[in-house]
Each structure stands twice: as structure tokens, then as C-alpha cells.
């Protein structure tokens, strides 16, 4: 009975999203300097970007078109996060200790323009995840929670992939999910905005959405570097290479429930590594040559 109810809800969702139309309102290249791996803040007013090899971190402000140098650290551009109040940027800093790589976490206060070291360099630190006005990160087999100026609330579900496994930390325990049999490994895992779904890529198998128990909800096909746009749409790249370098790549937005799909990059671009900010209907991506483009969308019901 519960299953029937679930299927009914899914069908209703499919019907509603199939009726949606995606149009591109605007496409522009706001940043003059070269940049890669863009990352929006929650309202889409700020855009972090870095170099191709994640050295350094800058933030572009859409309001005044200014660029702030956040850091020149190695690894600073790898998966930075903004605090929920958009006042701070948390980023990693990569160092080597006895030839082994270690990562620490630093914080840049956008208003005060100050930097603070949040976590000392350590081994095996997973991806940062925004948590209220701070962040959480899994390291040393523990979920480290850092909040600023606010009493800690219970830790959220924390999702990460490590190239091999798809992991979820919940109820104070790490659970390894293996939703796709035969996968060579899992990458690009992320939690949906509503916290109920996991988006990931199973190496050699494609990109999927599963629930928190690892049950597959949607198969999205070949879609690398996928990110959530909202709880219905995801954005990713379809890149092709010849084994030596990337020969073509396009950015797609796809519905997780149906076949709604739209290409967001132009045919003459090798477009990669998208970022999203549904609050301002923005998608950003970089070309293989380091030009960052922003696309503003209109998703409407027909």
C-alpha cells in the first residue's frame, strides 16, 4: 500500500515537471580574468572561482562587479562553501608534511576582509558542507562541526564520495552505500536541497539519484560533475575526450523525474564544471580555456 502511494506521488511529480519549460533568459561572461570551477553562494549574488588546478580563490560580486582575492593557497579553490548568511567563505589549504598531503580549513570574512584558520592541516579531510553560518566536514573518522555566533544544532546528514565509496554520516554513524552494482567508484556526491536525495556519479555507469538508503530514484545517464539546481533539476556536463584531452563538452540541465532536458552552453564552447543558484535562476560554468559564463534561466509551467 505504501509502495502504491509512493508510485502515485512520483507519477504526479513527473506529470507536473514534464509540463515545465526551460528557457534561457540571458547568457553573459561577467568576469574578465580567467577562472575555473565556479561555485555560487545561496542567493546567487556571489560567485567563487579558482584556477584549473584549484590554486587560489576569488569571489565575484554580481552587485558591484567587484572581485575579492580570498586566498592564494594551494587547494583553496577545491569545493569552497559560503556561510548561509553569505558573510564568510570557508576553504581548504593544502600543505605537505613529510611528503604526505594535508588539508586545513580557513575562513575569509567578506565584510571584515580577514582570514582565520579554522582547522589545522590534517589527513583525509572530506568535502566541506555549509551548515548554518559555519560548516561541517568529515575528517579523522569524525564529523567536525563549526558554527560561528550561534549555538550548535544537531548535525545534518553528511554525504561524501571518496572516489571509491558513497558514504553518508547520519545518526552519528558512517554508512557506506553501494547503490550501483559494478561501479568502479563514486564521485561528485551531493545532498539535495531538501536533504532527502543524493546525487552522484558511479564511475563508468553514469549519474544517478538515490534516497538516503541508497535506493535509486533516477538514472540520468552520462552527466559528469553534476550539481543540484533545485529538488527537481540537476545540472551537469557531458564531456568527451580522446584519452589525451577533452575534445568537447556541453552543460545540460535535466529533470530527475523525466525527460526534460536542455542544453545551456553554446555549441562552440567546451563547457565544464557547472554551478547553480536557483534562488537567482543562475547557472555558471567555465570553458576549457577558463572563461566563466553565467546563464539565467526561466523555468515555467506551460
Amino acid at each position: 500500500m505504501k509502495n502504491l502511494l509512493f508510485i502515485g506521488i512520483v507519477l504526479l511529480s513527473i506529470t507536473s515537471v514534464e509540463a515545465q519549460t526551460i528557457t534561457i533568459k540571458k547568457m553573459y561572461c561577467p568576469i574578465e580574468q580567467k577562472g575555473f570551477h565556479p561555485k555560487f553562494n545561496s542567493n546567487g549574488n556571489l560567485l567563487a572561482f579558482t584556477s584549473e588546478s584549484y590554486i587560489g580563490l576569488d569571489v565575484y560580486n554580481f552587485s558591484d562587479k567587484s572581485i575579492v582575492k580570498i586566498s592564494e593557497d594551494t587547494g583553496a579553490g577545491y569545493q569552497p562553501v559560503f556561510s548561509n548568511n553569505n558573510e564568510k567563505v570557508f576553504y581548504k589549504s593544502l600543505t605537505y608534511d613529510s611528503k604526505l598531503r594535508k588539508e586545513g580549513v580557513k575562513c575569509y570574512d567578506l565584510a571584515k576582509k580577514t582570514r582565520v584558520e579554522m582547522l589545522e592541516p590534517r589527513r583525509d579531510m572530506k568535502q566541506l558542507q555549509t551548515f548554518e553560518n559555519g560548516f561541517v566536514v568529515f575528517a579523522d573518522t569524525k564529523l567536525l562541526k563549526t558554527t560561528i555566533g550561534k549555538t550548535a544544532t544537531p548535525a545534518p546528514n553528511y554525504i561524501w564520495s571518496d572516489g571509491e565509496n558513497l558514504n553518508i554520516y547520519k545518526d552519528n554513524k558512517t554508512h557506506i552505500l553501494n547503490p550501483v552494482k559494478g561501479a568502479n567508484g563514486y564521485v561528485w556526491a551531493s545532498l539535495s536541497p531538501n536533504g532527502k536525495m543524493i546525487l552522484f556519479t558511479a564511475a563508468g555507469q553514469g549519474t544517478f539519484v538515490c534516497n538516503l538508503d541508497g535506493k535509486i530514484i533516477a538514472e540520468l545517464g552520462y552527466l559528469n560533475a553534476p550539481v543540484w539546481y533545485n529538488d527537481i533539476f540537476v545540472v551537469g556536463m557531458q564531456d568527451k575526450d580522446d584519452g589525451q584531452f577533452v575534445t568537447e563538452s556541453k552543460i545540460l540541465i535535466k529533470s530527475i523525474y523525466g525527460k526534460t532536458e536542455k542544453r545551456l552552453s553554446t555549441s562552440n564552447q567546451i563547457a565544464m564544471y557547472p554551478a547553480t543558484a536557483s534562488a537567482s535562476s543562475k547557472v555558471a560554468y567555465n570553458t576549457v580555456d577558463g572563461d566563466i559564463y553565467v546563464v539565467e534561466l526561466n523555468i515555467s509551467n506551460e
Partner: peptide, 25 residues
């Protein structure tokens, strides 16, 4: 290891290989 078999589907995209190594730290 990025693959354990020699099949076409194991011929991962360059971006996937890079991401596997990065996430594996």
C-alpha cells in the same frame, strides 16, 4: 584503482579519473 577490468565502460572520462584521485585525496 580506477578500473579492475578491461571493458569499454571502464574507459572512464578524464574528468572522472581526475575527480576520483581528488576525492580519494
Amino acid at each position: 584503482i580506477s578500473r579492475t577490468q578491461n571493458r569499454t565502460q571502464d574507459d572512464l572520462s578524464l574528468s572522472t579519473i581526475v575527480q576520483m584521485a581528488n576525492e580519494f585525496q
